[in-house]
């Protein structure tokens, strides 16, 4: 195998750490390279959702997991959510009041957009960020007015689908692992130093003074 490996943006807190630098080390095995390699290829383009719904989803993702403006390669969060929907019919359960996974997303995105129109007279994607946040907060509180919701619970859609599926997609990406200093894949090589304040040379070094606890 070539010594080349993919790269991901580093973060302010762990400036010297790119988890992908371990691609060709004993920390990564073939199944992991295959799974993460596929993820790195995903672009922000729909395969499952309609183009219209995908645009709304993309705008929602930008508010749920905002990415630094100076990040060179942004995580294609909406693309990852869309790919999950393409490949998955169920996460193994749903609340009795919620429709199945795919239907929940389709109806929910339509209703969210209509809520934006009812509240602010514009498409969700055309609203400024602050207004978009307001719409999302209203969903989170279950305070919705659009009739497009029908029997779909807005709060349930926000908590179980929007928050869950978007954040899970984001934190499955190596750039997000760099952001939080996660060791990332570790097989066959695991770790030797497992006590507090100790780390192996192949773990992320935290920048001194980067920690502002309790803020």
């Amino acid at each position: 195998m070539s010594k080349d490996h993919p790269h991901a943006d580093t973060s302010a807190r762990y400036p010297d750490y790119d988890v992908l630098a371990k691609w060709n080390t004993p920390s990564w095995n073939d199944p992991t390279r295959a799974a993460v390699g596929q993820r790195l290829q995903v672009r922000d383009e729909p395969r499952f959702l309609s183009a219209e719904r995908f645009r709304i989803l993309k705008a929602v993702c930008d508010r749920i997991v905002p990415q630094p403006t100076d990040r060179m390669n942004k995580i294609a969060v909406a693309g990852l959510v869309d790919r999950m929907l393409e490949q998955t019919e169920s996460v193994g359960y749903r609340r009795a009041e919620m429709p199945p996974l795919r239907e929940a997303w389709q109806r929910g995105l339509d209703a969210l957009n209509d809520e934006a129109k009812v509240r602010f007279g514009a498409e969700f994607t055309d609203l400024p960020a602050g207004r978009q946040d307001t719409v999302l907060e209203l969903l989170q509180q279950g305070d919705v007015r659009s009739s497009a919701w029908g029997d779909l619970p807005a709060q349930g859609f926000f908590k179980h689908r929007v928050l869950h599926d978007i954040t899970v997609s984001y934190y499955a990406h190596p750039t997000a692992w760099n952001e939080i200093g996660f060791g990332g894949p570790a097989s066959p090589r695991g770790y030797v130093r497992i006590e507090a304040n100790r780390r192996d040379p192949w773990e992320a070094e935290e920048k001194q003074g980067a920690v502002h606890h309790g803020d």
């Binding site: 095995n29 993820r39 193994g92 749903r94 009795a96 097989s187």
Partner: peptide, 23 residues
């Protein structure tokens, strides 16, 4: 040894993901 990735998303394949209704 050959089927398991160090990856949360990939390893969802271990779970029972057929639909169930919870209330």
């Amino acid at each position: 040894l050959e089927d398991f990735a160090s990856d949360e998303a990939e390893q969802q394949k271990l779970y029972w993901r057929d639909e169930r209704i919870v209330d």
